[in-house]
């Protein structure tokens, strides 16, 4: 149990594992202090606002991290394999939905486990992926900010600047799905 509630913490809340995606100290003009959080329920994937009283104790979950290979995803689950045991694990699709557009089958990812259950992916803050389809690159002006459609090697469609061509790699922030620049290798 801890009263040090902070962002990116795994807690047991309402008998379910939850991840704190945002946390902020808050004090109403005429009241006690609170910690306002956004909780991601790791069973349903739903994110809801909540408020803890200042000093309130929560049960912090001890989570484990393990590298696993992404095998495939269906409508309900995402399947991973532990390459050392060849054992297959599943993660509820709702808990990985935001990362799926940027995941490549066969790649390894860091999986977060609580007890023996997969609860999330510790996704890198930036991913580099290849463009497999887009209209021809427009050379020259790189500052206009104009964008065009492109398809990533994962099959995900996104917006990239006009000067990006097929076969180039781009950097993406998986949290916001935003283009962050051309990857130079």
């Amino acid at each position: 149990m801890t009263d040090q509630i902070r962002k990116n913490m795994y807690i047991m809340y309402n008998n379910e594992p939850n991840f704190i995606t945002e946390a902020e100290f808050y004090s109403p003009g005429k009241g006690s202090a609170f910690t306002r959080v956004k909780l991601k329920n790791l069973n349903s994937g739903r994110v809801v606002p909540f408020t803890f009283k200042s000093g309130e104790k929560v049960e912090e979950l001890e989570v484990n991290f393990q590298n696993m290979q992404y095998v495939y995803a269906d409508d309900n689950n995402v399947f991973f394999m532990d390459k050392s045991t060849y054992e297959q694990y599943e993660l509820k699709r709702s808990l990985a939905e935001q990362y799926l557009p940027f995941m490549k089958e066969g790649e390894e990812y860091t999986i977060i486990m609580y007890m023996d259950t997969l609860i999330s992916i510790k996704f890198p803050p930036q991913v580099t992926l290849e463009i497999i389809e887009t209209s021809d690159a427009v050379k020259g002006n790189t500052s206009t900010g104009a964008m065009k459609d492109a398809i990533l090697e994962t099959g995900h469609k996104m917006q990239v600047p006009l000067f990006i061509g097929v076969g180039e790699k781009v950097k993406i922030d998986p949290e916001t799905s935003a283009y962050q620049g051309r990857a130079t290798e």
Binding site: Y26, P28, G31, S32, F34, R36, F50, T51, F52, K53
Partner: peptide, 14 residues
């Protein structure tokens, strides 16, 4: 030690 005020604000904020 929880007070009425704490519950009031916790409900209001949540």
């Amino acid at each position: 030690h929880t007070t009425w005020e704490e519950l009031f604000h916790q409900l209001l904020l949540t």
